[in-house]
Amino acid sequence: MEFTVNGEKREADVEYDMPLLWVLRDELGLKGTKYGCGVAQCGACTVHVDGVAVRSCQLAAGEAEGSDITTIEGLGTPETLHAVQEAWVEHQVAQCGYCQSGQIMQAAALLDQDPEPSDEVIDIVMSGNLCRCGTYPRIRAAVHTAAKKLQEA
């Protein structure tokens, strides 16, 4: 199967049913996307498929074939962070950090569809991404900061 991952054409010889998460981590070596629960209840595996946030543990590789996939490795670069990543650093959002790539990918997708989300919208959209360290107040603040950065850019 062929995929476009972070702007590059990639191939993987996998079964239809293999979760996209396994393709990314085990076949393509992109370990930034995390395995949390495997059943779409935690959000740690969130990536963008054709610009839309999806839980990669739930998407069959066969359904992602030919798609344009962005993982945390492709959202920004160390030299040029995405606005959400900049805000995450400024607010020191991460504690243990395990859930954070999924949080950041979901937040970036949120700001693509709603450039100035209210607290209520942030809470609804981000509730599918669990953080056992309880960094939720910093996540909400960082989303607001990222929204301002994107509007000023």
Binding site: V52, R55, G62, E63, G128
Partner: peptide
Amino acid sequence: VLCSTCHAYRENLHDVPHA
């Protein structure tokens, strides 16, 4: 959040409990 974020399109039965 789109329903399809988790309830993705799939041709066959997704028979995993709690998924």
